[in-house]
Simulated scan of single mutants.
Amino acid sequence: MRMSRTIHVVDDDDLARDVIASLVATLPGVAVSAWDSAERFLTAARDGAAPGVVLLDLNMPGLSGNEALRAFDHRRFPAIIVSGQGQITSAVEALKRGAIDFIEKPFTLEKLLGPLKIAFDLLDRNLAEERQSDRERDRLETLSEREVEILALLVNGLTNREVAEKLGLSVRTVESHRARIMLKLDVSSFAEAIRLAVLAGIETPG
């Protein structure tokens, strides 16, 4: 395990929660947070809890594990279901809702290592993509409102002439905006500008 890993244990059973938290706390470089309900974990996740792998029980009073899976961001909180025997149907449903794996209680640390590696690798990729998107958005913020509007239309496949007609501009004005967009984004081709816009999730006007 690398440093600065976070594992969130979500289980209403005090004993099970403590056992699982103590088990994963033996992993080097891992910080463990324990939650006695899905509701409390979801509140913490919305309030800025550290991204990490969630070890999630299925059968909990209030919000169940499967209901919780609908509510949190799987890109920042990939989930592994850890629950009791006889819950295969619920486990299959959880996997369909985005859980990484299902492990029956009780389990050994060795049983958990494989799914944890998969989940942390996925989390690393997701966070790297998120940081890349943030960098692209920062570059796009140098554009004017009109330039963003034109870029979004071009991302949507419109030609210079079609953009000009839609916005009531001349083709030469659109071409001038394209040149300034490339200059501000510091790209050598407009295809690269389009790529940046797509990575940043630029909205296409209706």
Rank of each mutant, 00 (worst) to 15 (best):
E165K: 14
R180W: 01
I150K: 04
Q87R: 06
G62E: 12
E165Y: 06
F107A: 11
A99C: 05
M182G: 07
V155Y: 03
N66Q: 10
L69K: 04
R178M: 09
A128R: 15
L63D: 01
I80G: 02
P106A: 12
T173N: 08
R137P: 02
L95G: 08
G168N: 12
A68F: 06
M60Q: 01
V163A: 04
L143R: 04
G86P: 06
K111T: 14
M182C: 07
A71Q: 15
L167K: 10
D138W: 12
E110C: 03
Q85C: 08
A164R: 08
D134Y: 09
A164C: 11
G157H: 09
T159A: 10
M60I: 01
R75L: 13
P106E: 05
S176I: 03
L123G: 11
L185Q: 06
N66I: 14
V163K: 05
S83Q: 02
N66S: 11
V148I: 14
E129W: 10
E175W: 02
R97F: 13
I150P: 07
D57K: 02
L158R: 10
I100G: 06
G62N: 11
A91I: 02
T173G: 00
R125V: 14
L169C: 07
R137G: 03
A91E: 00
K111F: 03
A99S: 10
V92Y: 01
P78M: 05
I100K: 10
A152Q: 12
